[in-house]
Nucleic acid binder design. Sequence first.
DNA 1: TATGAATGAGACTTCATTCAT
DNA 2: CATGAATGAAGTCTCATTCAT
Lengths: 194, 194, 194, 194
Amino acid sequence: MAKSIDETKLERIKQATIEMVVTKGYGGASVSSIAKRAQVADGYLYRHFPSKQALVQSLYASHIDEFRQLVYEMMNTYNTLEEILFNFINAIFELTNENPSKAMFINMLMNDYTFLMSKDMRLRIPESFEKLLDKGKETKEVDAGISIEEFTAVFPAIPIEYASSRVKRIFSDEKLTSDDAHKVTTLCVKALKG
Amino acid sequence: MAKSIDETKLERIKQATIEMVVTKGYGGASVSSIAKRAQVADGYLYRHFPSKQALVQSLYASHIDEFRQLVYEMMNTYNTLEEILFNFINAIFELTNENPSKAMFINMLMNDYTFLMSKDMRLRIPESFEKLLDKGKETKEVDAGISIEEFTAVFPAIPIEYASSRVKRIFSDEKLTSDDAHKVTTLCVKALKG
Amino acid sequence: MAKSIDETKLERIKQATIEMVVTKGYGGASVSSIAKRAQVADGYLYRHFPSKQALVQSLYASHIDEFRQLVYEMMNTYNTLEEILFNFINAIFELTNENPSKAMFINMLMNDYTFLMSKDMRLRIPESFEKLLDKGKETKEVDAGISIEEFTAVFPAIPIEYASSRVKRIFSDEKLTSDDAHKVTTLCVKALKG
Amino acid sequence: MAKSIDETKLERIKQATIEMVVTKGYGGASVSSIAKRAQVADGYLYRHFPSKQALVQSLYASHIDEFRQLVYEMMNTYNTLEEILFNFINAIFELTNENPSKAMFINMLMNDYTFLMSKDMRLRIPESFEKLLDKGKETKEVDAGISIEEFTAVFPAIPIEYASSRVKRIFSDEKLTSDDAHKVTTLCVKALKG
DNA sequence: TATGAATGAGACTTCATTCAT
DNA sequence: CATGAATGAAGTCTCATTCAT
């Protein structure tokens, strides 16, 4: 009967939000500027999200979850820690190449103490890394003395930092390659081994 | 005498700014709230900084610089990369224990693409890490194939992430000890060696 | 048949409007909330009324008119002022019991200087009360010196205030009875007599 | 040291608020329009009141209280109900002449079910009228059978309605005089007597 | 006919900044 | 030198209204 919801609009809003938050920061990304970039009316945003905060929060949560699911997927597909890490890192790097803003967005909010994840999220993330650590100890690829705290300082910290500096074009303007993924995997594996 | 009063005011403003930014984010830290916490008048702030942005930027720059100077200092004092890293990491951990807000502040802004450092800063930081990398290669503690890009993904990324997760109390509520510094140094050294 | 469906929709819109305006005030009663309560689409409302303002105005006008017609009806049915007043007040009280919202709605808008009646309405109301005043003077139930201004301050002000305070449950939660109507009639009659 | 608060500004805001609310209704009286009429900046309003609602509420409460205090004052000054009522009504009429908006403002909000008084206010008002009723029964000016519900439907309903219709210029454009106050007092006294 | 997606003007509110004192 | 009253641009959000379907 009535006009049907234009799904591309919702997608445009999401992408515009990420780009504006990355470019201008959370505070600098005004709802108006997001709506303008997404080519929708200011008010339209509020038909899908109750507030600006909820909009950003929801995007953040879904990206973090995507991330976490990728870890599980890789754990179920590959047997050695090295293979798991490489394939995960490679996937992340590809995603970063395709949509650098998305990578910056996650990185930015993960380090924003103001933007805490929901309790649920906060618990499930360490859990997935703990599983990975156990796996590494099992295969003897990880020193038995490594704690979860040390583990996460290596993974995913190293690949995130590497991708982040590339996106910021601090040392290079090149795209991330599978060779980069290999190098980063090696750094992680060496750091952790006995 | 009047001068000294001034100095404590300035100090109070700086600390209040850091605390408010860390607690409420850049946008949530209003000039009024900073002035109130520092127990100075709103307008007084503008005698020292031309704008809120300049205030935060200046604090950020001076902290980053402190950081950089510490690297130089350690490089001139110690001879092996391991010693340099350990003493630097230990110093950073002590600073984090003393003033967690300060550590969170640096970490937060370093990952905020909005708060780009001045060109000057942006150049001098990689430079100081490049010197460190050269040193490591000289002493054979670092594999000759390691690029500056890989190096910075390990150091300072690993210690920063470790300190950051401690401050966020993700895995532990304990203070950072020199034992922590040792563990983190080992991770870095292992990641980089040939 | 289609017509009758229409009619119940229109009726639902009218009742929903009254209830929302009374509950939330004119500003708080959004078109959407009215449509939702009436179980019609937002846009459907605009097939019957050109604007929200017109919708409320029209309901107000029709209720005021209903009121006025009741006065005429009672004047044609009963001979003494006391009988007329009693039967009118009793009718109003019954209506208030059946549909308190309706009573509150009229009362609210009558005291809202924003919602001025149409010129037409404004003239016909005093006219009907003037006829009533003349009748009272004729039967000697009303002092010859009473002006129309004094008369309206007694009737319908007293019964309206009485019903209103009951609806607001200021002094009592009971329904309005014919005994209440008698008491109120007496107050009016005594106020006006010579 | 700093500029001192301009008290006239606060007064201008209060008067502008009353005038705008009376003219345009609560919803129609935008903060901007109030600020403009008061000749202050939009934001200035929020240095004195936390919200538009609080601003209007506070004015309403203080006027209602003024009203209530006037009743007490008259009760302590005069001995017969008739004297008390006359002097109160006269005072109200004078106030209405001086500042018709103020009178309209009170009347409008008193009949707005959306704008409930604080519980405290709601209790103290009937209480003051109850004292008045007791006084009237004591002096035998009021029939022993009159309830507080009937009493308030007469007083202050009659004088309010009379003043209100005058302010709306329904029957007359003249100012309210002490002769008007006498007439209205007589209506009340007659309605209540045994 | 009836719907409800979409709009955008405008509402309320905040806050960096200025400047009279 | 220091204050904090005052400003007003800009932000978030609501909602009456339109119109494609």
